[in-house]
Design a protein around this nucleic acid. Structure first.
Length: 220
DNA sequence: GCGACAG
DNA sequence: ATCTTGTCGC
């Protein structure tokens, strides 16, 4: 059973920030995972003017990227969208979806930042710490940090920095397309996070995991 | 005070 | 995130 009692997520933005500061030390930003055979992708969407949160999870075999399991759940939305506090809005539904899987996935590719966050505790870190499982943050756009140019080829990347600190990587997953923002979630190093993201993007800009989850969310 | 701001 | 048609390019 997971610690997702509704009241634990009924917090104010101020309390949410305190929780991030308290859990941040638990993040492990080095490779500390066993064999990775399955990868999950999560897609969160909103219905009925945002009153309902929908979470879809797709689990693929890391080798071959074939779909092996999935789940879709709907929960009442309990937290507004506040930049920097995205996990408090999305994680409750994500935990419910993950709980419906036959087995917990070995790795989760999150739709959002990991350490590339103002307080170094984005959604990927939060989910990883709660589950104490490997996670990687793969966002479609930047929350914070600066970076140089990224060569126009798949596999090319530039460090995402906040001052002298490297908080993530801006990674091109396909020739000539907008790069993704990859960062450490939990129990994975940045180098491995980049490798894993590339392993999950054989053809399109977004990871196959995220694409499958999105497809399931739209009912198919 | 003026922007920036994951999904 | 979500509301939405056509359009540019490989």
């Amino acid at each position: 059973m997971l610690p997702d009692l509704a009241h634990a997520w009924t917090v104010s933005p101020r309390e949410a920030i305190a929780i991030q500061e308290r859990l941040r030390p638990r993040v492990i930003d080095r490779d500390a995972a066993g064999r990775l055979e399955t990868v999950a992708g999560v897609d969160v969407g909103f219905e009925r003017d945002g009153r309902t949160t929908r979470a879809a999870v797709a689990v693929l075999a890391l080798d071959g990227l074939a779909l092996v399991d999935s789940a879709v759940v709907r929960r009442r939305t309990r937290f507004p969208y506040v930049p920097g506090l995205l996990s408090f809005r999305e994680i409750p539904a994500v935990l419910a979806a993950l709980d419906r899987l036959r087995e917990p996935p070995d790795l989760i590719l999150c739709d959002g930042q990991g350490r590339a966050h103002p307080r170094r505790f984005g959604l990927a870190c939060h989910l990883g710490v709660i589950l104490d499982r490997p996670t990687v943050g793969v966002a479609k756009s930047r929350l914070c940090g600066t970076h140089g140019a990224v060569r126009n080829r798949r596999g090319a990347w530039a460090a995402l920095c906040d001052g002298e600190e490297v908080i993530g990587a801006v990674l091109r997953t396909r020739d000539g397309v907008k790069p993704l923002f990859v960062s450490v979630g939990h129990r994975v190093s940045l180098a491995r996070a980049i490798e894993l993201t590339l392993a999950c993007t054989p053809r399109y800009r977004l990871p196959e995991t995220t694409r499958q989850a999105h497809r399931l969310a739209s009912g198919r």
